[in-house]
Design a binder for these strands. Sequence first.
DNA 1: GTTATGACGCCGT
DNA 2: AACGGCGCCATAA
Length: 113
Amino acid sequence: MTDQQSNRRERIWQVVALIPRGRVSTYGDVARMAGLPGAARQVGAALRILPRGTRIPWHRVLNASGRLSLPADSASGRRQRARLESEGVSFRDNGSVELRRFGWDGSAGSTLG
DNA sequence: GTTATGACGCCGT
DNA sequence: AACGGCGCCATAA
């Protein structure tokens, strides 16, 4: 693996690290913010391999529909939801989240759901 | 080099 | 709204 590729991974982590507590983003947006438009799947792959106990707020990344991409019944899925709720993020009955997306600058104010 | 496989996303039906 | 199909990008087999 070239350093380009590990840089790509680290760039993704770096972007995710910027998502403030209580806010969320999407795989696609993270990819774009990392300068990797269209590489949404790579964001998921990068988050999947995070070491245990990482400080990267991986749980703040949702899919474009505003829902968890992790199976809701899985251990990590429940962990993700619990962490989000502990940050004040609330969910609808359908599983979509009710919070604003973290985006570029102040322009991020759209409601997801 | 080819073919699966995914924490994805968009569009048409 | 739900589903399926296809594109996308990197890895693994």
